[in-house]
Amino acid sequence: MFHWLEKNPFFFSVGVFIVIAFAGLIEILPNFAEASRPVQGLKPYTVLELAGKEVYKKDNCMSCHSQMIRPFKSETDRYGQYSLSGEYAYDRPFLWGSKRTGPDLHRVGNYRTTDWHETHMFEPTAVVPSSIMPAYKHHFTNIADIETAYAEAFTVKAVFNTPYDVEGGVKLGTWEEAQKMALAEAKLITADMKNKNVKDAVESGKIPEIVALIAYLNRLK
């Protein structure tokens, strides 16, 4: 019945490919579709948080910090609930990291606060004497790139249908609206901060990188 296949190696290869691909599809796809769905209650990043995420990427935090709590008792004791794949649904790209020179940060918003981050980013050894993390003083003077963050949010909304501007969700709005909202969010954060220059900058309408980064870190819960 299938002797003709033996005479046609090309079609034989196609047949093998189809069989293996079919098995792969029914094993991988359903699980993949299920796991990549956002967990309930997950909201997309605000523009300020996205700007902070840009700072996180720019200064390569993920080469020392992971964002992935594994289901081991030792990890959940220290960092909290293990990570679920649906929690990264709006992370483009995800920042799992693969090396833990520093601790995991996936739920750092649960146990560190704005004022702690402020002190720590300016001089890590001030709070953790044995820390080998470098100081990130330039975050206090560099101005965060809100425009790129807005463009990123706008793009994922248009291309991937990320649910911005839905009822009870995160509002994106126009560029002018987004700037105002980011500034209002930044002011909430600087209320808990001590650095005079940062506070002044936000008062005058500029958002230093540290504020955006803290917004992002506080959001990691």
């Binding site: 004791d77 909290g80 609930q81 649960n110 146990y111 560190r112 606060t113 704005t114 004022d115 702690w116 808990d192």
Partner: peptide
């Protein structure tokens, strides 16, 4: 006055 301490209820 010193800052904010998070809740450690679940930890």
């Amino acid at each position: 006055k010193l800052g904010t301490m998070p809740s450690f209820k679940t930890m």
